[in-house]
Computed example of a mutant assay.
Amino acid sequence: MRAAVLNAFGETLHVEDVADPVIGTGEVVVDVVAAPVLSYTAEVMSGARGYLLPTPVVPGAGAIGRVRRVGPDATRLQVGDWVLCDPTVRSRDGGVTPDITLQGASARGAGGQLLQRYHRNGSFAEQMRLPTENAAPIGDIEPDEAGRWCAATTLLVAYGGLLAMEFRAGETLLVSGATGNFGSATVALALGMGARCVVAPGRNTRVLGDLRQRFGERLVPVVLTGDRAADTAAMQAAAPAGIDAVQDFLPPSAEAGVARAAIMTLRQGGRAVLMGGVGMMGGEELSLPYPWIMRNLITVRGQWMYDTAAIPGLIGLIRAGLVNLDHWAVSGFPLEQANEAVAHAAANAGPFRQTVLLP
């Protein structure tokens, strides 16, 4: 089969012939129809992100495809089924704290790297092997819909945070980082799940205006000024009632004070889920005030990726029309143009934009 291979950090991808994947018990092989290209793929390939990814490797996190072969223990998946290829691979012997690797992207800790030795190559290829439980059926689609369905890989991360905070219909959510890729996906999800209101702070007035145009009056934009106290007050004033929950997707380049200002909008008993990259490039700590957290019964938790139970729920929201994939503008590239796709993804990052490889 053909695959785009990263032979060493700092190099470009080389599209070449590699051996077809061979499966055993507990695995499937999927024909990749569309594979999302993350906006920061070039940073991963250069080594700038410092991701734990041994080379040579076929990169690519997640895909939409059709089952080509199933292992001897598969009971429901059938050849030809359309599936979402979940890149979050968990060790089967990890109990309540499984080791995790993001297939074709990175690994978490020493245990994740052990897992990565086997579940290594990702989706920038004509075929990929993955654990049976990571091939989630999505029902029949037309082949030209596969690229748009790749948005589900972004939506899954956002949905994982909303499930972690136990977000409920009728609540008001503030999305910190709403003008980014994951933040805007959170906006679409929360409104689809019945949010009373979503407060969307940011500095990019063009993107904030676009969000308002897409989602109507339940989306309330707030232009940030950099004055933390004033920004917190403005966000609180924008909500029709108290802010029940905050989901943070700010990037590594963001200052901790921006995240803190958003979190401190919470009403008594509010919840905050942190999923972004604040602090990963150094700088100020988040430093939330202990008395405020304690006296106001605030819950703050981190969430990395999502539980597997999130996948059928998200597919249900999409199939019900509560989350509309037509929001995403898709740019597709053939596998032979993998490097062009990586460059395009970097130059066209932002909400509701999806670059995909089409092997």
Rank of each mutant, 00 (worst) to 15 (best):
Gly202Lys: 06
Cys197Trp: 07
Gly202Thr: 04
Gln116Cys: 05
Arg129Leu: 03
Ala200Thr: 15
Arg212Leu: 08
Glu217Trp: 06
Gly147Ala: 08
Ser106Lys: 07
Arg92Tyr: 06
Phe167Glu: 08
Asn181Met: 10
Leu163Gly: 06
Ala164Ser: 14
Ser106Asp: 15
Leu219Trp: 08
Arg196Ile: 04
Glu142Ser: 09
Val198Met: 10
Gly109Asp: 12
Gly192Tyr: 12
Phe182Ala: 12
Ala178Met: 13
Val198Asn: 11
Ser184Val: 10
Asn121Val: 03
Gly209Lys: 01
Arg92Phe: 07
Ala200Val: 13
Ala125Arg: 00
Arg117Asp: 10
Ala136Ser: 07
Arg196Glu: 15
Pro137Glu: 01
Ala136Thr: 10
Val96Ile: 12
Pro137Gln: 02
Ala152Lys: 02
Ala107His: 05
Gly160Pro: 08
Gly160Arg: 09
Gly183Ala: 12
Gln213Lys: 10
Pro201Glu: 05
Leu174Cys: 08
Glu166His: 15
Gly139Glu: 01
Ser123Pro: 08
Phe124Gly: 02
Gln213Phe: 00
Val96Met: 11
Leu191Val: 14
Arg196Ser: 14
Val199Ser: 13
Thr153Trp: 06
Thr179Ile: 08
Leu211Thr: 05
Tyr159Met: 15
Ala178Glu: 13
Glu145Leu: 03
Gly147Val: 05
Ile100Phe: 07
Glu171Gln: 15
Thr153Cys: 07
Gln213Met: 04
Val207Trp: 04
Gly111Trp: 03
Val96Ala: 14
Glu171Asp: 13
Ala105Cys: 15
Ile141Asn: 01
Ser91Thr: 11
Ala146Thr: 02
Arg148Thr: 05
Ile138Thr: 01
Leu114Tyr: 09
Gly216Leu: 03
Gly95Pro: 08
Thr132Gln: 08
Arg214Cys: 06
Ser106Gln: 10
Arg203Gly: 11
Pro131Leu: 04
Ala178Arg: 12
Leu174Lys: 07
Ala135Tyr: 00
Ile138Asn: 00
Pro137Cys: 01
Pro131Gly: 03
Arg92Thr: 15
Asp99Val: 05
Ala169Glu: 14
Gly104Gln: 07
Gly177Ile: 11
Arg117Phe: 02
Gly95Phe: 10
Gly183His: 12
Ala190His: 14
Arg212Phe: 02
Gly170Cys: 08
Asp144Lys: 00
Ala110Gly: 03
Val199His: 11
Gln103Thr: 09
Gly209Trp: 02
Thr88Ala: 13
Cys150Ala: 11
Leu174Val: 06
Gln213Glu: 12
Gly104Leu: 08
Gly122Leu: 04
Gly104Met: 07
